Simulated scan of single mutants.
Amino acid sequence: MRRRPLLIEGNEEKIGFILDSEVLNVLLTGEENLKFFYELYNGRKPKENVISSVLERIGLSTERKKKVLNYSKGMKKRLEIGRLLLYRPEALLLDEPFSGLDSGGKELLMGVLMSIKNKGTAVLIVSHEMEFALDLADRVMLMVDGRLLAQFKPEEFSRAYVVSGDGVEKLGGITLGPRSVILISPEGVDELIRRCREKGIVVEEVTPLIKAIRRES
């Protein structure tokens, strides 16, 4: 009996992914990996120019015949990006997709993801590198210790701060810890300090949320 491919054209439940762990076959070349995944996703062999076009776009044309075992981490991640260009998933799950990429690789990934998103694919990104993820986001979810703590619009997230000190709970906001809350302030740090003084709160630190996340990663 012919084995049915895992994902085929017309399947209503196509899910693409980039994980923070290796899914590539390191004993195959970059070109062979892309051919394998193309057949897996589409149930047929690729046309002659398809793989060459993808390798050109991800900057690995000259490395196509090299075994992935000898690729750097950044090159492997570029090859992972290439997998996303082989088919059109209904949903895309990305775990720390910017890890291991240089600035050129990050720009490449951003361009690919924006193109995929604009074609109607739902994209879920788990990342500590919020500067890049925010440019793609329609909604930001903050998770702490495996639980969903809060949801933001991208513009709210960019104006969110972590305020620490005794009595900061009087300010309201989202409780981050015993002496820390998250507050959104369009006016910035000065406005938050003023609010603290009005309530007699001695502030220890006010940090942009995006910077606090980067510091904890």
Score class of each variant (00 low, 15 high):
A137Q: 11
L113D: 03
M130V: 15
P89Y: 05
M130I: 14
L183E: 03
G177C: 01
A122L: 13
V189W: 01
E169W: 07
L93V: 13
A122E: 10
I81G: 00
R197M: 15
A122H: 12
P89W: 06
L94E: 00
D102A: 13
M141I: 13
V123K: 08
G165H: 01
F157I: 04
L101Y: 07
K199E: 13
P97D: 10
G120N: 03
A137S: 14
G167M: 15
L86D: 01
G172A: 07
H128I: 11
R194L: 09
E129V: 03
K153E: 15
S115F: 08
E156V: 02
R88A: 10
L134P: 05
M143I: 10
R195T: 03
K117R: 13
K77I: 05
E131S: 13
R139C: 11
L136A: 12
R159P: 01
K170H: 05
L148D: 03
T175W: 01
F132Q: 14
A137Y: 10
E131W: 08
L136M: 10
S127R: 06
Y161G: 07
R159N: 14
D138E: 15
P89C: 11
E169I: 04
G173V: 04
G200S: 09
E90S: 08
E187V: 04
G82M: 09
L85K: 04
P186D: 12
K76D: 00
E156A: 10
I125N: 07
G120F: 05
Q151G: 09
G165T: 01
S185C: 09
I184D: 01
P178R: 10
G200P: 06
A91G: 08
F98K: 00
I193R: 15
V163A: 06
G104M: 07
K117Y: 08
L85T: 03
F132D: 14
G120Q: 08
L113P: 02
I182W: 06
E169D: 15
K119C: 03
T121F: 02
K153W: 06
L86S: 02
I125Q: 12
D190A: 14
L148W: 04
T175L: 14
K77V: 08
M141Y: 14
L192T: 00
L113C: 03
L84F: 12
V126K: 04
S164N: 01
E191Y: 13
